[in-house]
Design a protein around this nucleic acid. Structure first.
Length: 274
DNA sequence: CGTTGCGCCTGTTAGC
DNA sequence: TGCTAACAGGCGCAAC
């Protein structure tokens, strides 16, 4: 499940292998690979060269030598792979970009929640990304303003953490990890948390995602890999997510899993009290 | 307007 | 053993 550290790992791989390349052709192999909000069919980027590869939260995009960008979201299972021309097609290959130098940039996506799109790129971020809040590593991230936004929310803190309009990049894994680290129960009401607690939570999110980035992200299976096909190693470092009935590393109480808001939350019932 | 729930997908696993 | 149901869950939109 690609969240900020995984998407950033992919972005760095893409930058290393495709920066300054020209996109010679685009081939779309599945109708869901194109986001319906794309302003044009994907093959309009043919002939463009890749000037920069950028990211906000879980969205990434190719800045082109044109007034529009090629935006990508990996969804649940999206992958980019750099492959030599002629390599056998992957089972869930959804689109391929032919680059100069006999390389292909392939978009592979089992569950088809991921997509590509062409979007106007004349502001700070492409139009398609403009509604997404800056992530915690963005120079535009305003920590005190974001703390105030969380404090005004009339919902549980876990839900708010997943809201990409407040702060982007955090998904279910890093939400649970951040809450564990900050010792906050996922069902705590936002408007009952002190500014200090929320500040601690943001600091925890920043630390957890920084550590994950160093490890190349979290891989449970082959659904998340980087552009070289390599897995990340942060799964070994998870303290709460996916550890139901295993002992908390701080107090040995068994981690509990509950479901609310349609998703699983993992937490230590002793360290993270309501 | 803010919050909540649903639908979109497919491969794996748990349970009967 | 073989089938069905549950599960994974980011995002956009509809509904309340």
């Amino acid at each position: 499940m690609p969240e900020l550290p995984e998407v950033e790992t992919v972005r760095r791989g893409l930058a290393r292998w495709s920066l300054n390349s020209t996109i010679n052709a685009v081939q779309v192999l599945h109708h869901r690979a194109t986001n319906p909000r794309s302003v044009a069919p994907l093959d309009v980027v043919a002939g463009a060269s890749i000037a920069e590869i950028s990211r906000r939260g879980k969205f990434l995009w190719f800045d082109l030598d044109r007034p529009y960008a090629l935006v990508a979201h990996l969804g649940m299972s999206g992958q980019f792979r750099i492959q030599p021309v002629g390599a056998p097609d992957e089972k869930h290959l959804r689109a391929r970009l032919l680059l100069d130098g006999h390389q292909e940039l392939r978009f592979i996506d089992q569950r088809t929640f991921g997509w590509l799109a062409v979007s106007a790129n004349e502001g700070p971020v492409p139009q398609l990304v403009s509604a997404i809040a800056p992530d915690i590593f963005d120079p535009l991230f305003d920590r005190s303003a974001v703390i105030n936004k969380y404090r005004k929310k009339e919902t549980e803190i876990k839900r708010a953490l997943l809201d990409q309009n407040l702060m982007s990049g955090v998904g279910n894994i890093y939400a649970d990890e951040s809450l564990w680290r900050a010792k906050i129960h996922p069902q705590s009401r936002c408007d009952e948390l002190s500014p200090r607690k929320i500040e601690n939570l943001l600091a925890a999110a920043e630390i957890v995602m920084s550590k994950a980035l160093v490890e190349g992200g979290t891989s449970f299976d082959s659904l998340y890999i980087n552009v070289n096909g390599e897995s990340g190693y942060f799964a070994h470092s998870l303290e709460a997510y996916g550890r139901e009935n295993e002992p908390c590393s701080r107090c040995a109480t068994h981690i509990r899993r509950i479901v609310f808001g349609g998703r699983s939350s993992h937490f230590c019932p002793k360290c993270q009290r309501l």
